[in-house]
Design a binder for these strands. Sequence first.
DNA 1: GTGAAAGCGCTAACAG
DNA 2: CTGTTAGCGCTTTCAC
Lengths: 362, 362
Amino acid sequence: MTDKAPPARPRRAATLADVGREAGVSAMAASAVLNSPTTSTRISKETQERVLAAAKKLRYRPNQTARALVDRRMNALGLVGMLAGGDPNLYFLEVFDGVVQEATARGQIVTVFNVGSWEAASRLIPQYCDGRVDGLILVAPMIDAPASEWLPEHAPAVAVHPNHAVPGVANLRADDEGGARQAVNRLLGLGHRRILHVGGPVGYMGAELRCQGFRRACEAAGVGVPADYIVRTDFTAEGGAQAMDAWLQSHQGQPLPDAIFAASDGIALGCLERLQARGLRVPEDISVIGFDNTLFARAARLSTVAQPLRTLGRLAVQALLTSIEAHRDGHAATDATETVLDTTLIERATLAAPRATPLLIA
Amino acid sequence: MTDKAPPARPRRAATLADVGREAGVSAMAASAVLNSPTTSTRISKETQERVLAAAKKLRYRPNQTARALVDRRMNALGLVGMLAGGDPNLYFLEVFDGVVQEATARGQIVTVFNVGSWEAASRLIPQYCDGRVDGLILVAPMIDAPASEWLPEHAPAVAVHPNHAVPGVANLRADDEGGARQAVNRLLGLGHRRILHVGGPVGYMGAELRCQGFRRACEAAGVGVPADYIVRTDFTAEGGAQAMDAWLQSHQGQPLPDAIFAASDGIALGCLERLQARGLRVPEDISVIGFDNTLFARAARLSTVAQPLRTLGRLAVQALLTSIEAHRDGHAATDATETVLDTTLIERATLAAPRATPLLIA
DNA sequence: GTGAAAGCGCTAACAG
DNA sequence: CTGTTAGCGCTTTCAC
């Protein structure tokens, strides 16, 4: 005999129709009430109250996916990056932090896409544009294929620290070369001359620019850079540790460098660990400077070059939102822009003047 | 005279109807082809190929929000946590890492919701259940109100390190008390007796349990704990630094503690910084041990208690997915479960035997 | 084998 | 002021 609707449907979010039924009005009346911005005044006070009461009773929440279907907008931003399995990617994490803060402030949610490797990315990225997000923020993308092949029809996107500037979108990065020069100039100013650069991976624009900044600063100071005083490795502590060991091993009996300029804090940390393991003191025996000013640096009391990572994240959100607006208004994609932010030198406990008499490598 | 459809609509993702039109078949034929699982054989080879070719040409991607509307499932998981403005929340970040890895492996995307404060959370969380995600992972939620008030109708959810176990959902955490005992027992084993505990905020279950583990380990060893040897502060480096300074200030002229057990790596780092600033040597003058084994710990060469944070993240995803399945199959909410993972002691460079003669605080 | 029709929850454009 | 109709892009059921 339970022919009519049973008392309450257990597990299904209340819908506008439910609210309308409860309040004795149509679903669209309920819609009108619950979305005051446009049409609130059209509904009588009395009806409004009934609807509001019903919505509250039923704990009504508008279904955003249904809404997205009609106004073609999810209010969700996609963050694409590579979260390696090994040590957490602190660089990514700080940008992420900035992105989440700004997105939240702008009423957007952030969805994270983890590309296992950038080789897979050009296949994966198109799949991310499936309506669940309105645009993409690419963090340190390392993609060689031309964007037209993998970026769906000028989908709204921005790139932070891309290996090549992505055409047709906003590109944001820090001044890697300038930052490297700041670091090296400081080392030079302290009197260091034999400076080892433990650089990042070949092919990464950031790594290349830091390497170039290193060379230029040395050149400008008239300091020669022997070929073996530049090595390249991964942007990780393991990479730094291996590079450091390998270098020391292959230079036994020769003088220890005065200082090391590492292309990232992770690399610097690896160097530090290997140096300490050999009983070498930092900064008394050798100075070290990193890059990024991630948490690593603070915890290790490492001097470093700070990039405004969180700011980069916030700006990326702003640029992306602008681009999304333009896109929905039918404006052509705003042409590629390139924004470069300044870096700052942070001095901590790994910098000192060189030793009077260089140590020999054991 | 462009009366018919113009050559190509510029900016709008291709739809099933578009594909069908291009291939000269109906939209549902296209649908049937492009979603082989159920109905692939029903369509003729020839039609299949035409559809596939059209889809490729048009770069067709199924719209997940439309699909979600019909099968009530977004394949997106929500991660709710508090990303404070100050130092990045490394604890959150590591759990996050595990969540993203596992979710990606299971074909789910992860959406991050940042509650500015847990006070706001009970208002915010219901809003997150708006169809954009299928379930929620609450990371270290600190909510006093009963779950029935803020968790929408037993929406699928799991909690990692909740301050109270959330009823009706899976609760996951590490063995905080056991971990604390491990740490303290190690200190005791080295011969330390006057151990200062710099604990986390009052009210956080994790902080309380670590504090309790500290007390119990001392009691079990017959070591008394004066009331002023337990202080509480925020889970941050700043908190640790302030607490350390305040304690040293108020104990001038008294003997320095043998060792410090900090309730988090962040706190430990703050302590370390203040100790070093006073010229005290770790571990020669005083031993320090942290909790969490975040990056902080490694970079600062800090001994600590490791929690399987990434594993917690992975398990949370698995539990949530199970719960989502149960939910859609109409099974009642699986009753609350509680999973407690073991911790591991990690020894680095901040542990040593106590000094023969205690130092006095300057 | 294939198309027509209905509906997921919502909003927009009209009628009444 | 309010209800009806149509449609966002997709899937499912059911005729043909």
